[in-house]
Amino acid sequence: MTEVRKPRAKPRGTVEIRVDECKGCGYCIVECPQKVLVLAKGFNRMGYHPSEYLGDGCTGCGICFYACPEPGAILVRKLEPVS
């Protein structure tokens, strides 16, 4: 899970996890097509292992956003123009 990925020259998207809103259900991790999300080792304020972005490889597809049941726990940005 912690394998080192080679950063892309130009990232296509980015995902931000609001740690204290995440309940660690794991849906985003399962659904992410790029497999760039993992459960953190540490705990958040509520005692859950929150989801964590590996830091590279997000395409900004938004699938994790809809997989996540929390209104504001995930924020996804597409860094390339939407076709």
Partner: peptide, 8 residues
């Protein structure tokens, strides 16, 4: 597809 997926 959207440019940003954030809390509504």
């Amino acid at each position: 597809p959207k440019e940003i997926y954030a809390k509504a």
